[in-house]
Amino acid sequence: MSDSAPLIHPTAVIDPAARLADDVRVGAFSLIGAGVEIGAGSVVGPHCSIHGPTRIGRDNRFVGHAAIGGEPQDKKYAGERTELVIGDGNVIREFVTINRGTGGGGGITTIGNDNWLLAYTHVAHDCHVGNHCVFSNNTTLAGHVSVGDWVIISGFAGAHQFCRIGDHAFLGMGALVTGDIPPFTMVGIDGHGRPRGINAEGLKRRGFDAERISAIKRAYRTLYVAGVPLAEAKQQLAEQAQHSDDVRQLLDFIEHGDRPLQR
């Protein structure tokens, strides 16, 4: 919409119980339901639907045809009050779907700040997405998936329910994840989501120096290449973590998971 266009298109439908900041723009044929809050500077493009309870922060952009805050696609959902919370500065592209949580799964789905969710991305109920992530076209997260910060997921990749994906991980195109992906890990494009080294290029772009990257590479070899049992690998990682906060982060991730690692 141009700067001269009205803030709310005359064909848009805004429920009286929705709360929009004064400068929020809403495009043609979009629906904003009851219980929706949208912060300043946000733009809702044409043909979007946003259902509540949903809280959306500042400076978000919904490009068009996005379906946000819909009921969870879970047969156990019985109409209980659940919500979706989206932070600031996110870009939500065409036909993205993000569902609210379920009563049995914590009751909330969350999206952090400064994320890019590209066309046809699906974020299911009770997922938690961090900050600065990029989900390429057709990324699919099943219910209860947790994604850290600075994660990149390539096109047509997906994660099974309850999986965790750690900070700075990279999933290749078409990767199917059925276990936890530790921080810094790169997942292959063979369709099985197997780890294939660390996301060294991404770490360099984010200011990790050679010493930090070397420590992470050593930890990765301990976990995935050395061929030792997981218990022994964790002992070695604990020793390495004494000299590296990044290795400590990786070890903490492993120790607090309920699902097996993707190996």
Rank of each mutant, 00 (worst) to 15 (best):
A226T: 02
E201C: 02
L141D: 01
A175Q: 03
F184P: 04
L237C: 05
H243Y: 02
A200V: 11
M186H: 06
V225H: 09
G174S: 06
L141V: 03
D167I: 12
I152P: 01
P183F: 09
Q235K: 14
I189M: 13
Q236M: 06
I153F: 14
A200P: 00
I181G: 04
G188V: 07
G166Q: 07
H168Y: 15
P182Q: 04
F208W: 15
T140Y: 04
C163K: 10
H192Q: 15
S136E: 03
D209N: 14
S214P: 00
P182V: 08
G202L: 07
L141R: 01
I189K: 02
A233N: 03
T178C: 04
G148S: 14
L203V: 10
N138P: 00
A215I: 01
G166C: 09
S136C: 12
S146L: 07
A142S: 15
F184D: 01
A210V: 12
Q236D: 09
A238R: 13
T178I: 12
A215T: 03
R196L: 07
T185R: 06
A169R: 12
V145H: 08
R218G: 04
G207L: 08
A200Y: 01
I181S: 05
K234C: 14
T139V: 15
G193H: 13
T178W: 02
P195S: 12
T140F: 06
F170V: 04
D245T: 11
S154T: 14
G166T: 06
D190C: 10
R206W: 02
L176M: 15
A241Y: 08
M173L: 13
Y220M: 10
S136G: 00
M173W: 00
D149C: 10
H192V: 11
T140R: 00
P195N: 13
Y220Q: 09
G143N: 09
P182S: 02
V145P: 10
Q242C: 00
Q242Y: 00
Y224G: 03
H192W: 14
L230P: 04
S146N: 09
G143L: 08
F135V: 06
K204T: 13
G227K: 04
G179C: 11
K234H: 00
L223M: 08
A142L: 04
A159W: 05
A215E: 08
G166P: 08
V147A: 07
D167R: 14
S154A: 15
G148F: 12
D180V: 08
K217M: 11
E201M: 13
I181K: 06
A210I: 06
P182D: 02
I181A: 05
G179S: 10
F162S: 12
I153C: 14
S136I: 07
